[in-house]
Nucleic acid binder design. Sequence first.
DNA 1: CTGAAAGCGCTTACAG
DNA 2: CTGAAAGCGCTTACAG
Lengths: 346, 346
Amino acid sequence: MHLTLKDIAAEAGVSAATVSNVINGNRARVSADTRDRILRIVERRGYVPSAPARSLAARSSRIIGLLVPAADQDSLTLSPHTAGIIGMLERELRRHDYHLLLRGIARPAEVTEVLRSWNLDGAVLLGFLDAEIDRLGRRSVGDVALVAMDAYADNPLTLGVRSDDREGGRLAARHLLGLGHRRIAFAGPASSATGVVRRRYEGFRLAFAETGAAWDEDLRLTVDTTHASGREAGLRLAADRPDATAVFATADVLAIGLMEGLAAAGRTVPGDVSVVGYDDIDIARYVAPKLTTVAQDLQAKSAAAVRLLLDRLAGGAPPDAAVTLDVRLILRGTTAPPCTPESPGR
Amino acid sequence: MHLTLKDIAAEAGVSAATVSNVINGNRARVSADTRDRILRIVERRGYVPSAPARSLAARSSRIIGLLVPAADQDSLTLSPHTAGIIGMLERELRRHDYHLLLRGIARPAEVTEVLRSWNLDGAVLLGFLDAEIDRLGRRSVGDVALVAMDAYADNPLTLGVRSDDREGGRLAARHLLGLGHRRIAFAGPASSATGVVRRRYEGFRLAFAETGAAWDEDLRLTVDTTHASGREAGLRLAADRPDATAVFATADVLAIGLMEGLAAAGRTVPGDVSVVGYDDIDIARYVAPKLTTVAQDLQAKSAAAVRLLLDRLAGGAPPDAAVTLDVRLILRGTTAPPCTPESPGR
DNA sequence: CTGAAAGCGCTTACAG
DNA sequence: CTGAAAGCGCTTACAG
């Protein structure tokens, strides 16, 4: 039979309330003596409190949800970036004695269902579009603490945590411009779809403005964030714009696809074309040449998300602005000065 | 104010028991009329049942735990393989109206704590050593359904789900032997540590026996499953055994590290040395040349795990043997016939 | 510092 | 087919 609070109380000869106070570290409410005695019994008997019961009585579940978009019948596709975030979030939560419930969201209404059903203390929204986040109303959120990661939504019910995407785009472009490149392509999803891409693009353009370089709108490549579409884009770029000497991609997989497409078109990297990626996932170091890329601090991002959630749960005032984390450029082998017309790469 | 069962009952003019029966699809216990009426009210008011309350009353949480080893203060390191499994498990569980709790396990005792505390209906153990799984006793497991994935533990409290690792090793070796290779290295962790590696090694050796080829014990390379140690191993192999013409690695990251090490030592792949990996993770198609590798069916593996858990929850008899899933060889660009001594690769 | 009692939101025999 | 009542294992004022 399952061991309960009552059993411990009976064995210790105290009330359930007292055991409860001990379990919850309510040190002010119980003498050191009885506390020690109870703790010893708990230890010896291997008593584990029932989380559902606590959750019900205390109206707090100590569960944080990680909500990720999922096409209805599809499985969650966890990118290396997402997988990294998950691992770090779990660690941070575990340190604070919280648990992580991972949930794919197919319909907007499911957000409410999960939050309410499990009485979540908070949740992290990862990978949603800004518009989807903005659509969340008080009715569906209740008073659950919500972190919107990598989003630029305007929803006041939501705490923002993201990297400095504008700076990331700017660093990439400044690096390439500094090497002497002028015809630099920008490859990524449509800016209208995600604020992250828009900010990276803005930063990218900003570097052009700062340098006084002209930006050629035709070099804005709209591409899905996949290896396959990166490859196609590389092929197309080589065919349509052989004068382009560099390309910045908004994700590493995309950049690696581009490298393959460029190679297939007979262009060398970085000899003919320099490439800069984004995220610094493991693969960036596995390809040859190794990918120059903009790195985010996943560790800091996850820690910030958890801190924000726990602060709100502790009753702290929410910050007045989204948390923005630093970003840095990792120089590796895919960038080099452009070939001068006099000494073509091939 | 939170909407409860009672509110719905009051509005419908029925008892809480009846609403409960409707919610739980207990069709035999309530007339179609009242059922429809109640469902309409539930719908209109957006009532969501409290999972902790259900969990407490019904002694079933509808939560399945995914337990992954974690060094104490460390974050979960989710390999691409693990990330794939997680995504598919979540989908399967969601389809069956279950939830996934992700938990890193630092100390063995934590397994019991999580199982008991959340009243988990079941759990999947992913990435544990066979010895750790064997150590789990009835006391710590209770009657929770447990799937040990990719393990060859002997624990009767545990349901095994894994790929046909022996066949995987055999396929790899047969492919290389068939191409004419004879001095083939085997790179992977020590067989003693994990049953998975031992089975792959056995299958590998089996192919040698079947072909009548001699196996050279010195070509058993003991290496961690990381890109870095793969690289080192590649360097070492090129230096110590320049006569080896092929290598089979027990993981794709390892294989890719080997390729880099071989390249750094001036050996070409597959010109001088053929390489076969394991898992067919995305990266296998991102490197050049693309990696020949043994693919597991993650989808099937996840589905089997969930089916096993749900069957046991439904009271079905556990299968008498572990579930073993098929495996297949994916031919790509890293394998070729060996160079004859007369026409050396370089 | 400690305890009795009510209550959290459900489910489950049991009786009708 | 429907309801009254007990109970799941905790927490939380409240009183002492």
